[in-house]
Amino acid sequence: MHVTIPNTERHKVEADYHNRAFQVDVYQPNSPVPDEGFPVIYLLDGNSTFSTVVDAVRLQSRRPERTEVHPAVVVAIGYPTEEPFSPERFYDYTLAEPEFDVRKKWGDREIPAHGGADTFMEFMENVLKPMIESKYSINKLKQTIFGHSLGGLFVLHALFTNSQAFQTYIAGSPSIHWNQTAILKERDQFMQGKPKLDKPISVLIAAGEREGNHASYMLENARQLTDELKDVPDLEASFQIYDNENHISVLPRLINQSLKIALK
């Protein structure tokens, strides 16, 4: 007997590059649709986070007057695999050539194809979002993107290059070291352009305490970037360290805090 998550549907969504087909799982609340539509959360690495996020939304949105978490549509952008992660994410979430220390880490192994973040962003904006908005009641003014690790790096790329695509950006343990030269160049262009945001946006950058010893300086890179973003008008940037958590165990706590920001 198969167990399913209530009120969910699975779609196969074709992309026009690399013969890519995404496994897109969507949860829609079993509650009256607000006049303006439901808020929506787009999850990167959807295979790894969908059920956790859906359960958190279902439970906490039952009493929004107490939790401040309101019902939302959850869209998990995943891959046709039973594994939590797919090697294809390396292409979809990264920018240019990785830094030397990352190449060295792989040793004799071949680094997966990478550098397709712009292409993946075009897919999200031109294919995925229109499809979701045609099938579900979406509030286009309350959209969140959630990514962790390489997904967190992509969230930063989306913020710096398309800051009006979402209103809330969640970057968990972002792999800034992977594309450090490229992502910091995008940061500089974003900051120097003195962005005038049509609507205030929220950014949460977070990491686990145990990531502080990582050779990539993941925690310090994230902290420093958050401090810099606090100078951007109409952008509310916050940084969170979760005590006693590592790169993977940080996810449930990050999800919980993200809902409080995205669905308040």
Rank of each mutant, 00 (worst) to 15 (best):
S134G: 14
L197W: 05
T144E: 14
T181S: 10
L153S: 06
G172S: 14
S173K: 08
P195C: 11
L184C: 05
T161D: 09
N162R: 11
H148Q: 14
N139A: 11
W178L: 05
I183C: 00
G193M: 08
N139F: 11
K142G: 02
S175G: 06
K196H: 13
Q143W: 06
P174C: 00
F160M: 02
S134E: 15
K196L: 11
K140W: 01
K140T: 14
P195W: 14
S149F: 09
Q167V: 04
A165C: 03
I170C: 00
K135R: 15
I138Y: 01
Q192S: 11
H148W: 08
Q180N: 07
G151F: 05
G172P: 06
R187L: 13
F160T: 03
Y169F: 15
L197E: 07
L197I: 07
P195I: 10
K194I: 01
L150K: 04
T161N: 15
L159P: 02
G147S: 05
S163M: 11
K142W: 02
F190K: 03
K196F: 09
I138A: 01
N179P: 00
H177W: 15
G147M: 03
Y169G: 08
G193Y: 09
K142C: 03
K135W: 14
A165Y: 02
K196A: 15
I145D: 00
G193R: 07
F166T: 01
V155G: 09
M191L: 13
A182P: 01
S175T: 08
K199Q: 13
G151A: 08
K199L: 05
R187F: 12
F166Y: 13
P195L: 12
W178T: 07
P174H: 01
D188F: 06
E186F: 13
L197C: 04
L141S: 15
K185R: 13
S175A: 14
I176C: 04
A165F: 07
S134L: 10
L184T: 15
H148L: 08
S134T: 15
Q180T: 07
